[in-house]
Design a protein around this nucleic acid. Structure first.
Lengths: 307, 307
DNA sequence: ACACCTTCTACTCAATCTGAGCATTAGCCA
DNA sequence: TGGCTAATGCTCAGATTGAGTAGAAGGTGT
């Protein structure tokens, strides 16, 4: 009896923001995030391996990279006689085109997860399709206890029934929708036969959801936005990137107060006159803030430890 | 030429808190965290595999489990003809003894990472040994630029030179000490030949440091403390657990205000008279808070988005 | 040149939260 | 009963947050 060999895959959720749109690099059809395999002989570390084959596959040199999660459920992957365990990474880059011959392209992140974008208010897919599907899922619980638990979970995840919507829980929302049979990746036909949000191959949409949740969390307490911005930028640009990722609109004046008086950025004295209104001062990231504050991030609302 | 096979290891940092002491379950000598291997045939998911062999090895049924990190650098592990990739997990349990025949025991987490415990003020190991070692490391930078960068990093990590100490950066601190040759696990003889903090096998102390950082972060915005407490508890008990993990002392009155008025706990009307002073009311975790607040956690100081 | 539009930027203000301290309560023990 | 200890209640100033008003500085079209 031979045991099935373990194969180590590496996946990269490569995120950029163009103007108002958060983007993720995808390959193939149905789309998936770029994927490679660890060469146990050649690659000294997992992250090096990742950077190497992302460069080879897409021509992109990754900057900021962090590990997201390791997926190892049986039955993932194509071949059945091997056990595919994948380490997923999150990478943030300033957008640029993948090299022409590369089969990679930028997709709109919210095309895959349309229920995550609250910038224009609650996205219509929620009341129109998510909520009915969840109601059905709740109703099909085996007993009252399970139905109550399902109701609570659904409410919390989508900010129903008095609960507040929490952008960082993107993964939990996706997993809930999976369980509720709302996403075709689950193998069950979606409620009503309609598909909402573009599916991805295998469990890749789950990974993207997790990446989104992670970025949103990080935004608060680490200056990761600047990985997505040029050296200098206007406060509007900064705000739009923060909004694109967090999925909510921010109060402009307060946002600027927070990043400016919070020491996160400093003015350069130069101006961008192409704003369409009053010229905007160009700012740059203030590295010293790392020394001054334990958890510097852009000011996002909704983190109250009490009340 | 045969490629070296990938072997998937699973490690568990199992944390409990007894009275004032955060504990971690260790095995062997030098101590390490419990470790198993994925059976690609038998184990359906990584987490199931983990729970199974932890139960087998230690008799402990894990409750709260979350994935920490996946380590895959070449040269880890004992055998050289295989590539060991390990997925590390964090588990929180209410303390109980490992089954007698099991070779596992509870160790004091701060015995391994003594520079992380600020409850009695800055631990003496920092001024006496860490700072001199880091000063030496800074001084041995190749040029002025590198020395300045090292100085800044050292200052930020240990709250020197105007920087504020951030408990959540336990991993970064450990990595810094590794680079500085302060920990024997790095393979270099520690500065001065003295060893501070009990070493662990392989890279296990690194994993424990990461686990500590993760718990400290989670404490803020998820009600994980309750995984470590009995069903009902006094607010002092709650505070002591929070302090043990966060590594800092908290202002009692403010702490109680935050958890109580923040809706995290509710009184039971019963009292514990064994306090040595005025009897303390027994509280329980208020599950409803999950619905009411997006990020419920115990009130820890020091998270300021500005200023 | 002028009104007008747009966006950026500067302030204000009330509500709330935070950090710190003082004071009181309620068992236990000699 | 007085003194000890730990729990609990309350106050207060300073900082932060959320929301809004208003002015500044460009462009555009007549």
């Amino acid at each position: 009896m031979t045991t099935s060999p373990v194969v180590l895959g590496l996946s990269a959720v490569i995120v950029a923001v163009t103007a108002d749109t958060p983007r993720v690099l995808v390959v193939g059809d149905p789309p998936g995030v770029p994927t490679g395999r660890l060469d146990p002989e050649a690659d000294r570390t997992l992250e090096r391996s990742l950077r190497r084959w992302v460069r080879e596959q897409t021509g992109i040199d990754l900057g900021y990279v962090e590990q997201l999660y390791t997926l190892g459920d049986r039955g993932r992957g194509a071949l059945s006689d091997e056990r595919l365990v994948s380490v997923a990474y999150l990478a943030l880059v300033r957008e640029r085109s993948p090299s022409d011959e590369a089969p990679a392209r930028w997709g709109d992140l919210y095309d895959f997860l349309p229920w995550e974008d609250f910038r224009e208010g609650r996205p219509s897919v929620i009341p129109e399709h998510v909520v009915p599907a969840l109601d059905h899922w709740v109703a099909t619980g085996t007993d009252g206890v399970e139905r109550a638990a399902r109701r609570e979970r659904a409410d919390i995840m989508f900010g129903q029934g008095g609960a507040t919507w929490d952008g960082e829980r993107a993964l939990e929302r996706y997993e809930l929708l999976w369980e509720a049979g709302f996403v075709p990746e689950s193998g069950r036909a979606p409620e009503g036969g309609e598909v909402h949000g573009e599916p991805m191959t295998l469990d890749h949409r789950r990974i993207v959801a997790q990446a989104l949740g992670r970025v949103r969390g990080k935004l608060r307490y680490r200056p990761v936005v600047f990985e997505l911005l040029p050296e200098t930028f206007t406060l509007s640009q900064l705000q739009r990137v923060a909004e694109a990722l967090s999925g909510v609109r921010l109060h402009t004046q307060n946002f600027r107060r927070l990043v400016d008086r919070g020491g996160l950025v400093e003015g350069t004295g130069e101006y961008d006159t192409s704003t369409g209104g009053r010229p905007a001062e160009l700012y740059r990231f203030r590295r010293e803030v790392l020394r001054e504050r334990p958890a510097p991030g852009v000011g996002l609302p909704g983190l109250r430890t009490s009340g």
